[in-house]
Amino acid sequence: MSIQHFRVALIPFFAAFCLPVFAHPETLVKVKDAEDQLGARVGYIELDLNSGKILESFRPEERFPMMSTFKVLLCGAVLSRVDAGQEQLGRRIHYSQNDLVEYSPVTEKHLTDGMTVRELCSAAITMSDNTAANLLLTTIGGPKELTAFLHNMGDHVTRLDRWEPELNEAIPNDERDTTMPAAMATTLRKLLTGELLTLASRQQLIDWMEADKVAGPLLRSALPAGWFIADKSGAGERGSRGIIAALGPDGKPSRIVVIYTTGSQATMDERNRQIAEIGASLIKHW
């Protein structure tokens, strides 16, 4: 067993022997301040990774656009098919120029040779490549099948209805392509620590998230040296922004954090800054 596999296998073990965790309302004060600064709703939840206990939450059962955070769930569904012998990570998928959609920095470079399922998941999570996500959605049967996968996990809230990039439209009061912070946090925890996926697939999923290259201005910008984070960000229309993450000190994750916002007129930089400040408060009061 590799060191990384050992780390993920012992996530519940280490967490069980940690000192009790206590909620700190100071972080919620910052979440509410972010709402004021952005002029928009902000949803927040913080779960203990081992027990699933909610440590703090704000608007945990209000719907927010998922945006690209759905790509972690998508690759979880792909990995479940791999575990069941219905898919192979090494299978190569070929596609054409007509398949390319807006923001496809990886797939646009491989029109000639195609990409493997493993490479597509890596591109979808680490670079948020939209064509990679659409190609992977095709392998599982489309958005409705991802929703069905989530329902089978016990998540009857999260739903995907459309493809990239239309799913980022974020129309107010439109339930399409949305989740709730509580539902997303619980589902992410199941994917990373539950028995739904094999140990190898859980490790692969967290490795992809740990290698995320496009979430630097968010929670990662607030992390002290030595902290662990595996995350996936999302951005959408109407001032929408979000991030889902597993993080913790001492090089291992111990909490799940989900943050979503929508309806702001603020710039992307300002949305990023507010999420980073929430992260800084979380870490300060850990």
Rank of each mutant, 00 (worst) to 15 (best):
Gln86Ala: 13
Gln274Asp: 04
Ser201Asp: 02
Leu188Asp: 00
Lys53Trp: 09
Arg241Lys: 06
Trp227Gln: 00
Ala185Thr: 03
Pro60Ser: 13
Val82Trp: 07
Asn98Leu: 14
Leu55Ser: 06
Arg273Tyr: 12
Leu247Arg: 00
Gly154Ile: 02
Tyr95Asn: 01
Gln265Cys: 09
Ser51Gly: 09
Glu270Tyr: 07
Trp208Lys: 01
Tyr95Leu: 07
Glu175Tyr: 13
Thr138Val: 15
Pro60Ala: 15
Leu160Ile: 13
Met115Pro: 01
Val117Ala: 04
Phe6Arg: 09
Lys190His: 13
Asp207Thr: 12
Leu247Trp: 07
Leu219Phe: 09
Gly239Gln: 02
Trp227Gly: 02
Pro249Phe: 04
Ile3Ser: 14
Ile229Tyr: 04
Trp286Gly: 02
Ile275Ala: 02
Leu192Lys: 01
Glu108Trp: 08
Ala15Thr: 15
Ile244Ala: 07
Ser96Ala: 13
Phe228Ala: 09
His94Phe: 13
Leu205Asn: 01
Ser221Tyr: 10
Ala170Cys: 13
Ser233Cys: 02
Thr131Gly: 14
Leu111Ser: 08
Arg273Gln: 10
Glu169Gln: 12
Leu120Val: 05
Glu108Arg: 11
Lys32Glu: 09
Gln203Val: 15
Phe228Arg: 07
Ala235Val: 05
Leu205Glu: 02
Ser264Gly: 10
Leu167Tyr: 02
Met268Ala: 09
Trp208His: 03
Pro224His: 06
Ile243Gln: 03
Gln88Pro: 05
His94Gln: 13
Arg255Trp: 01
Pro60Val: 12
His24Tyr: 09
Gln204Asp: 09
Cys75Val: 10
Thr186Ala: 14
Glu195Trp: 06
Ile45Pro: 00
Asp212Phe: 02
Glu270Val: 13
Ser51Ile: 04
Phe70Ser: 08
Gly248Thr: 01
His156Ile: 12
Ser201Trp: 03
Ile244Ser: 03
Val21Thr: 10
Gln97Asp: 13
Ser240Ala: 13
Gln265Trp: 10
Leu10Gln: 06
Leu55Gly: 07
Leu188Tyr: 08
Leu89Cys: 05
Ile275Gly: 01
Ile275Met: 11
Leu282Met: 14
Ile93Phe: 06
Pro12Val: 11
Ala230Leu: 05
Leu247Gln: 02
Lys144Ile: 13
Ala148Pro: 07
Ile125Tyr: 00
Thr158Ile: 02
Ile125Trp: 00
Arg59Ser: 05
Arg162Met: 05
Asn134Met: 04
Val106Ala: 10
Asn50Lys: 12
Pro181Gln: 00
Arg91Val: 05
Ile243Glu: 03
Leu282Ser: 06
Gly279Leu: 04
Leu205Ile: 09
Asp207Tyr: 14
Ser51Ala: 08
Ala222Gly: 11
Tyr95Glu: 01
Asp212Ser: 07
Ile171His: 15
Leu10Val: 12
Asp231Asn: 05
Leu199Gln: 14
Phe64Ile: 02
Glu210Asn: 10
Glu108Ser: 12
Ala34Asp: 02
Met184His: 02
Ser57Asn: 09
Asn50Ala: 12
Phe149Gln: 07
Gly239Pro: 01
His156Asn: 14
Asp250Lys: 14
Met115Thr: 04
Asn50Arg: 13
Asp207Val: 11
Asp212Lys: 04
Val72Glu: 01
Phe13Met: 15
Glu35Phe: 02
Ile256Gln: 01
Ala266Pro: 04
Ile259Asn: 01
Leu10Cys: 11
Val157Ala: 13
Met268Leu: 10
Leu135Asp: 01
Asp231Leu: 04
Glu35Ile: 03
Gly90Tyr: 12
Glu237Val: 10
Met67Asp: 10
Thr267Asn: 12
Pro25Asp: 10
Ser96Trp: 12
Arg241Phe: 02
Pro224Ser: 06
Ala170Lys: 06
Tyr103Glu: 03
Met127Leu: 12
Asp231His: 04
Phe14Lys: 02
Met66Phe: 09
Gly242Arg: 00
Gly154Trp: 04
Arg189Phe: 12
Ser240Gln: 07
Lys190Ala: 13
Leu136Phe: 00
Val21Gln: 05
Glu164Asp: 01
Gln86Leu: 13
Asn168Glu: 04
Asn173Glu: 14
Ser68Met: 00
Asp177Gln: 01
Pro60Asn: 10
Leu89Asp: 05
Val82Gly: 05
Gly142Tyr: 02
Ala225Ile: 14
Gly251Phe: 08
Leu38Val: 07
Arg81Trp: 06
Met184Gln: 04
Gly226Ser: 11
Lys144Arg: 14
Leu218Val: 04
Ser201Phe: 04
Cys75Pro: 01
Thr262Lys: 08
Leu38Cys: 07
Gln204Thr: 14
Leu111Cys: 11
Asn152Ala: 13
Asn168Pro: 02
Gly90Leu: 10
Ala280Asp: 14
Ser57Ala: 15
Leu160Thr: 10
Gln88Cys: 10
His5Trp: 05
Ala124Asn: 04
Gly52Ser: 07
Gly85Arg: 10
Gly141Trp: 03
Leu74Lys: 02
Thr267Cys: 10
Ala183Thr: 12
Ile229Trp: 02
Ala182His: 12
Gly194Val: 07
Pro20Leu: 02
Lys109Ala: 10
Ala133Leu: 00
Ala211Arg: 14
Asp48Val: 05
Ala84Lys: 11
Arg176Phe: 09
Ile256Leu: 12
Ser281Gly: 08
Met115Glu: 03
Gly263Phe: 04
Thr139Asp: 11
Ala211Leu: 13
Glu62Phe: 07
Pro172Trp: 09
Tyr260Ala: 02
Ala148Tyr: 13
Tyr44Ser: 01
Leu49Ile: 14
Val78Ala: 06
Glu175Ile: 14
Thr178Met: 03
Ser104Tyr: 03
Pro181Gly: 04
Trp286His: 04
Ile45Thr: 12
Ser128His: 00
Gly43Ala: 08
Asp48Trp: 03
Ala245Asp: 00
Arg189Trp: 13
Ala280Ile: 14
Leu89Ile: 07
Pro253Ser: 09
Glu270Gln: 14
Thr138Ala: 15
Pro249Asn: 08
Asn134Cys: 04
Pro217Leu: 08
Asp177Pro: 01
Met115Ser: 04
Val29Pro: 04
Leu136Cys: 04
Arg7Trp: 08
Pro181Cys: 08
Ile283Thr: 09
Thr126Val: 10
Glu26Ala: 14
Ala15Asn: 06
Asp129Ala: 00
Gly226Leu: 05
Pro165Val: 09
Thr107Met: 05
Tyr95Val: 08
Arg81Gly: 06
Ile93Tyr: 06
Leu146Gln: 04
Leu89Val: 06
Lys190Arg: 14
Phe13Tyr: 10
Leu38Met: 11
Ala123Asp: 02
Gly90His: 12
Ser57Tyr: 11
Arg81Gln: 10
Gly52Glu: 07
Ala245Met: 04
Tyr260Gly: 00
Leu73Glu: 03
Ala215Val: 04
Thr112Ser: 13
Gln203Asn: 13
Gly226Pro: 07
Lys32Asp: 05
Val31Cys: 14
Leu218Tyr: 02
Leu135Asn: 03
Ser96Pro: 07
Val82Leu: 05
Ala15Val: 14
Leu223Met: 11
Ile259Asp: 00
Leu188Met: 11
Lys144Tyr: 13
Thr112Lys: 15
Ala215Met: 03
Leu136Gln: 01
Asp36Arg: 15
Thr158Phe: 07
Met115Ile: 07
Gln203Ala: 12
Phe17Ile: 13
Leu218Thr: 04
Trp163Gly: 09
Lys252Asp: 09
Met1Tyr: 01
Asp113Ser: 13
Thr262Asp: 09
Ala215Thr: 06
Thr131Arg: 02
Ser254Pro: 07
Asp33Arg: 15
Asp161Cys: 06
Leu38Asp: 06
Gly234Arg: 00
Glu169His: 11
Phe14Cys: 09
Gly216Cys: 08
Leu196Met: 13
Lys284Gln: 13
Asp48Glu: 12
Leu197Gln: 05
Thr267Phe: 07
Leu218Trp: 02
Gly279Tyr: 03
Glu62Ser: 08
Val8Trp: 08
Arg63Ala: 07
Ile244Pro: 00
Ile125Lys: 00
Leu49Phe: 15
Gly234Thr: 00
Arg176Thr: 06
Arg59Asn: 09
Val82Lys: 06
Leu167Val: 14
Val82Ile: 10
Lys213Gln: 14
Leu191Asp: 00
Val106Leu: 14
Asp177Lys: 01
Met184Ala: 07
Ile11Cys: 13
Met184Arg: 00
Asp113Leu: 08
Val257His: 01
Lys284Arg: 13
Leu49Gln: 05
Thr27Phe: 04
Ile11Val: 12
Asn152Cys: 11
Leu146Trp: 05
Asp250Ile: 10
Lys284Gly: 12
Leu47Thr: 09
Gln203Leu: 10
His156Ser: 11
Ile125Glu: 01
Leu196Gln: 15
Glu26Leu: 15
Ala183Lys: 08
